[in-house]
Amino acid sequence: MRRFLLATFVFLASFLLTAKSLNDPADRLLGVWEPSNGRARVKIEKIGTKYYGKIVWLKEPTDPETGKPKLDKNNPDESLRNAPLKGYRMLKDFTYKGDDEWTEGTIYDPNNGSTYSCIIKMKDANTLEIRGYIGIATFGRTDVWKRLQVPAKP
């Protein structure tokens, strides 16, 4: 009987924790998003307690110079310049601050190899405002990202 009670307690605790995770408002950030220029798609995932976004689709996946898949050739770290752009984590280390905002993260621009401080604000369930900035948020730029989904089957 004692064993049964313990097992039940453990199962319930595990279930409650999982349920909390599924309903966590911070997890609304998860999914695939498209920046306003439509040139890439970024999948935001949760690893541990932080949120990360990786490039999963490129409008022009091939480097016109080499005819091969685009690489992160502008990365300031030379050892990363042969890494494929597809799969590259361009959003890193975001934590949910509350009030529909994820902060303390960075965004990487593969066009120039620069990494900026970044704040993500969810305007509605399908719209993000992503502000990359230098030092203080005043010196920055906001882009609007839209959520993507698998199209409904006819």
């Binding site: 695939v32 995932e45 949760k46 690893i47 689709w57 399908n126 990202w145 839209k146 199209p151």
Partner: peptide
């Protein structure tokens, strides 16, 4: 297990083809 429930998908090969045919969940940009 809670942590690993959100897998780091870069750790495994991912089929990027599944992201080719997506549509906007709401209004597009």
């Amino acid at each position: 297990s809670h942590a690993f429930a959100q897998t780091d998908s870069t750790a495994t090969e991912e089929d990027y083809g599944e992201y080719d045919n997506l549509s906007f969940a709401g209004d597009g940009n």
